[in-house]
Design a protein around this nucleic acid. Structure first.
Lengths: 188, 188
DNA sequence: GAACTGACGAAAGTCAATATTCGTCAGTGA
DNA sequence: TCACTGACGAATATTGACTTTCGTCAGTTC
């Protein structure tokens, strides 16, 4: 129904009249499906984030050692944001706006990812791969420590101004993950 | 000479005419001391950051265990930014602008602090308190992992929207520092 | 001639009038 | 009744005239 929407849309620049024309409707009719323009934006964003979140959850709840899964999750999250920035700038801008303006979708997305990371940490602790830290707290710290690599605004900042290479950034993230995972390990 | 400047000035809102009046000069005369308006802003910012940097260097090069000094440095840095945000919003805004617009002063300031943290890490490694990690790399990671608590824009964001308590924020920083310092320790 | 200034062009910022866009609602056709 | 629309008031964006500010320079004062 609203499938056609998610194709040729750019955030904040296209009017609902454009969307309606794209769908072969009148502008008024769009409001039978969405309560407001910002609801449309949120729906598009939610659609995008849903894909990311389910990918990360697949990693979190999949096989492998807990540290490896954490590493894979954060690498994947970083890679997704980087890809967005380079190949779908409009979407990147929309997600950036969603974060700085604290849209509704974002908090759910973050909670979902933190929960997934929390599960991995709890699992790792159960298996003796991690120290018995509070999973929720650990997950939040991981998120905050890697903010540079997963926050759209900070990524854009790094790429725009400092001219950081893509590979170098990924390398630094790996170093950070080494440090954090060392910190999570139990005393031996 | 330019001492009188640093009192009653607000960033980006006061004209050089105001500064000149404050100093009992004509606007034109100000340009004998500063090459441009932005040079005045940078000078004010540099003055502020100089104080912070020298405080942190005193901690870095002072007595105590390396982990404790690192912790003290980052706590102090966080506290300074928080204090700025609450009691000198104009200055906070100026530093924020300096960071987002990448003024000249900033890179020097960051380099200085990273160097100081690097010295502490190297010192700790020499004494066996830390694993033999590359000091520069370790310092950069510490900086990035604690960005939430030391980046003016992120602090403002956290305080404005999420209504985070001051104490809670400091507590989370402590947790983060625990994790990071655990990660830096040598295998035992 | 050293220290400073008034006056001025260029650039940036301000604000109100204008033009778009949002979202509603009575109304059309099936 | 249901799926939809044209027309319209309210809210938001854009334009452009006007004002302020920046930074220079010839010129004044001591």
């Amino acid at each position: 129904m609203a499938e056609g929407l998610f194709r040729a849309i750019g955030y904040q620049k296209t009017a609902v009249a454009d969307i309606a024309r794209e769908l072969g409707m009148s502008p008024a009719n769009v409001y039978l499906f969405f309560p407001s323009k910002s609801a449309i934006n949120e729906a598009i964003t939610a659609r995008l984030l849903e894909g990311v979140a389910s990918d990360l959850e697949a990693i979190a709840d999949g096989p492998g050692a807990a540290p490896d899964r954490l590493r894979a999750m954060l690498r994947a999250l970083h890679a997704r944001h980087l890809a967005l920035f380079f190949s779908q700038k409009r979407m990147h801008d929309m997600v950036s706006a969603a974060m700085s303006e604290h849209w509704g979708v974002i908090s759910g997305f973050i909670a979902r990812i933190e929960a997934a990371m929390g599960r991995v940490i709890a699992d790792g602790a159960r298996r003796g791969e991690f120290a018995p830290i509070d999973p929720a707290e650990g997950a939040r710290m991981l998120k905050q420590a890697t903010l540079c690599w997963t926050h759209p605004v900070l990524i854009a900042d790094a790429m725009d101004k400092r001219q950081v290479e893509e590979a170098q950034m990924a390398g630094e993230l790996d170093g950070m993950l080494d440090l954090l995972i060392r910190g999570l390990r139990p005393d031996s």
